[in-house]
Simulated assay, not measured.
Amino acid sequence: MEYNFILPENFIEQPVSDLLEKTWFIPRKQRHFLRMKKHCLVNNKLINENQLVHAGDKITLIFDNEDFSNLSLKFGSANLADILYEDEHLIVVNKPEGMKTHGNTADELALQNHVAAAINQEVFVVHRLDQATSGAVLFAKNQFVLPILGKMFEENKIHREYLALVKGHFSENQFTIDRAIGQNRHDKNKRILSAKGQKAVTHVEIIKKFTDKTLVKCTLDTGRTHQIRVHLSSLNHPIIGDALYGQKSQERMMLHAGKIIIPHPFENKILEISAISTSFLDILNKTK
């Protein structure tokens, strides 16, 4: 496949080698192929990797079947993919509660398989939502952009906003939970606060108070497994419907990824994509 990019106005000049390795995080194997096959062009001309590139330059990258291995993803049902945004490189989809982001085996169908069916091509998981959580999920449409988006997540350049309905009330309207999270040695399905765990930071803002519940907005600086669920339950405010960290409920777990904000990796624009869950809103509207 051939990809063409115009470097944006705010681009800082750098050698082509740095652009490929340090800015776009292209793996070493694929950089080798680009160099040996002469598949990297600047302004339609062959270049050496030490050449400086500048804002406004056209970069052409060509990848063939040898450059990336196939994912061999089984297609699911296209009608189960609620696509919120799509372009040449990435796609954002609204995941319903109760559906996995990706399957654990090659034969298990999940959101990834349904998205692939909807656009008739493989897609690659950038991040995931818990099965019981609904909302916006980002997939890469090619293996070239996959490490770029992954690095953006690691560096907290991609922001996610969650809505959660929790038990009880808080004394503050805004606060931050900065508590490391680690594996629960007694239950592999659970996470716990642990000084030896991974750094985890959740910012919490009160949206609305009900009789004995509170609607909060949570934004993340990190993306640990079950992060919001563990952090809120550690304050004795578990998410309603969270059977793992709170109490069982006949209704869904009230956690929804309502917005994802992505600085586009190749274009000088910010994508702000919202997702709506009717089941979340239905329960919320019945809450007093």
Rank of each mutant, 00 (worst) to 15 (best):
V216I: 15
I177A: 00
N94L: 06
A243D: 06
T60V: 13
L235M: 14
E251T: 14
T211P: 04
T202F: 10
L284V: 05
T101K: 09
C40K: 08
F25Y: 11
H231A: 11
H231Q: 10
R128L: 05
I177V: 14
I240H: 10
R160T: 12
N79G: 03
P263G: 04
K208P: 00
E272S: 15
V145D: 03
D82P: 00
L215S: 00
P96Q: 06
A132K: 07
R35W: 09
P263A: 06
E172F: 11
G103M: 02
I192K: 15
G223H: 06
G197D: 12
K95H: 05
H159P: 01
R229K: 02
P96I: 09
R185A: 15
K209V: 06
A243N: 03
M1G: 14
T225V: 04
L84E: 04
I91S: 08
A136P: 09
M99S: 01
N184H: 05
H127A: 09
G258K: 13
S234C: 06
A243M: 00
V126P: 13
K196D: 15
F280P: 03
F124Y: 15
K74T: 11
K217W: 04
F280V: 03
L52G: 05
S249K: 04
K157D: 12
I261W: 00
Q112H: 12
D57P: 07
Y162E: 10
H237M: 03
N236Y: 08
L235S: 00
Q227S: 09
V93P: 07
I59N: 02
L19K: 05
F63Y: 13
F25L: 01
Q131F: 09
K188I: 14
L149A: 08
D282P: 01
M254F: 07
A110S: 13
K38T: 02
Q174M: 11
K45T: 13
M36A: 14
K58P: 00
D107I: 06
K141E: 09
K208N: 12
